[in-house]
Computed example of a mutant assay.
Amino acid sequence: MGYKTYRQEKGDQSTSLRITCVAFSCALLCFFLPPPSNYPKSLPLSTFPTGVSYALLGKHKFTGSSLFALCRIHAARSNAADTSERADEEALRAALCASTLPLLEESLGFPWAEWIQEMSGPHPALATQILKSASRVPGLDALSLARLFSRKDVPPGLRIEGHRMMWALNPAEAFQKGRQIIREEKPRAQHQFPGLYVENILLPQKSLEVTTLLEEAAASPTLSSWGRVQAIRELARRSISREIGGLFLTIFLSEERDLTVRKEALLALMAIDPDSGEEILLTRMPSRSVRPILHAFMAELREEHGLPPLPKR
C-alpha cells in the first residue's frame, strides 16, 4: 500500500524556499546595480535615489574619493539640468551620496576641509551637506571645521551650518561670534547674513545666551528690518514676565527710521504689558500730518483696545 508523505504532497518546501530567496536576491541586486555602459542615456532617470543604493550595497564598495566624485557629478548634473524635476533629483542624489560618506571606512582620514572648500564655490548646497556629514564622523575635529567655515568669506548657507555646529560644540565661542555678527557685521548687497543668523541660528534655540543675542538683535540699528522683527516676535513669544516690555518700549520710542520695527515693538509691548502699551496709545500719538501711517496704525489699535477715539477734524 503506497501513500505519499507530507513532503511529497506539498513539495520540498526548503528547496523551494532556497530557490525563491536566490531569485529574489538576484532581482534585488539587478534593481540596485548601475545600468550597463550601453544603456540608453535618453531614458528618464530612475526615481529611486542612487545614494540609498550606495549605502545598501555596502560601505566597502566605494572609497571616499570615488563617492565624493559621484557627489560632484550629480551636483554638476543638477546645475545643468533642463527641468526643475531633474535638477531636484540630481541634487537629492548628490546629497544622499554626501550623507553616505561618514559610513565608509577610513572616513576619519578623509580630506573633509578640502572637499568642502572645493564645492563651496560651484555647489554651496553640496558643500553644506558634506560639512553636516563630517560632523557625524566619530573622533573628527569638527570644531576646527566649524571655525573654518563660519568666516565672513564663506557662502551664507555653508556659514550658517558652521555656526550651527559651533553652538553644538562650543557654545561660549559661538556666543561671542554671534554677538560680533550682530554688533559689527553690516548687511551686504547679496545677502543680509545677520538676519539669516537670527532666523536660522537663534530662533530654533533656547538658552540664556540666545535670549541675550535676540535682545541685541532686536535693538540693533544695523540689522535688517526682517531680522529685528523676528527677534522682537520671538522675545515676546518666550517672555514669561513684563521685564522685556522695557526693551520694546525703548525700541518704539527711539526708532526713527524703521516704521516696521517700531510698529512691531508696539505690538509686542501691547502683548507683554498692556497697561504700558495703552499708555503709549493715549499719550504718544504722533501727528497725523508728520507720521500719517504710524498715526493710522495707533488709531486702529486704540479702537481695538476700546480706548477713547481720537477727536475728528
Rank of each mutant, 00 (worst) to 15 (best):
M1F: 06
Y3K: 06
Y3A: 04
Y6I: 11
T15A: 13
S16G: 05
L17E: 14
L17Y: 08
R18Y: 02
R18E: 11
T20E: 14
T20G: 00
A27L: 12
L29T: 09
F32P: 00
L33T: 09
P36D: 07
Y39C: 07
Y39P: 06
L43F: 10
P44G: 07
F48P: 05
P49T: 04
P49C: 03
S53L: 07
Y54L: 11
L56Y: 11
F62N: 12
C71H: 11
R72E: 15
I73T: 15
H74Y: 15
A75R: 14
A75S: 15
A81G: 10
S84P: 05
E85A: 12
E85T: 12
D88S: 13
R93P: 02
A94K: 07
A95W: 05
L96V: 00
C97M: 09
A98E: 03
S99W: 05
L101C: 03
L103V: 00
S107F: 02
L108F: 02
L108Y: 06
G109Q: 08
F110S: 01
P111Q: 02
P111D: 04
W115V: 00
W115D: 05
Q117A: 13
I130Q: 12
I130S: 08
A142R: 12
L143V: 09
L145V: 08
S150Y: 08
K152V: 12
P156K: 03
R159F: 09
E161C: 08
G162S: 07
R164H: 11
M165D: 05
M165F: 04
A168V: 07
A168K: 13
P171R: 04
A172H: 10
E173R: 05
F175E: 10
G178V: 02
R179I: 00
Q180A: 13
I182G: 00
P187A: 04
P187T: 03
R188A: 13
H191M: 03
Q192H: 11
P194F: 03
L196H: 08
L196W: 09
Y197K: 04
N200C: 01
L202V: 03
S207Y: 07
E209I: 00
L214P: 06
E216R: 03
A218Q: 06
P221A: 03
S225C: 02
W226G: 00
W226P: 00
G227S: 02
R228G: 10
R228W: 01
V229Y: 00
Q230H: 07
Q230E: 09
I232T: 05
R233Y: 04
E234A: 05
E234W: 01
R237S: 13
R238E: 13
S241L: 00
S241N: 13
E243L: 05
E243C: 01
I244S: 11
G245H: 12
F248G: 07
L253A: 11
E255S: 06
E256D: 12
D258C: 06
R262H: 05
K263E: 12
K263M: 13
K263G: 00
E264D: 09
A265G: 06
A268P: 15
A268F: 12
D273W: 14
S276K: 15
G277A: 09
G277V: 06
E278N: 14
I280M: 15
T283K: 12
S287A: 08
R288Q: 14
V290K: 14
V290D: 14
R291C: 04
R291H: 15
M298R: 07
A299H: 02
L301C: 11
E303N: 02
H305A: 01
G306K: 02
G306Y: 04
P311W: 07
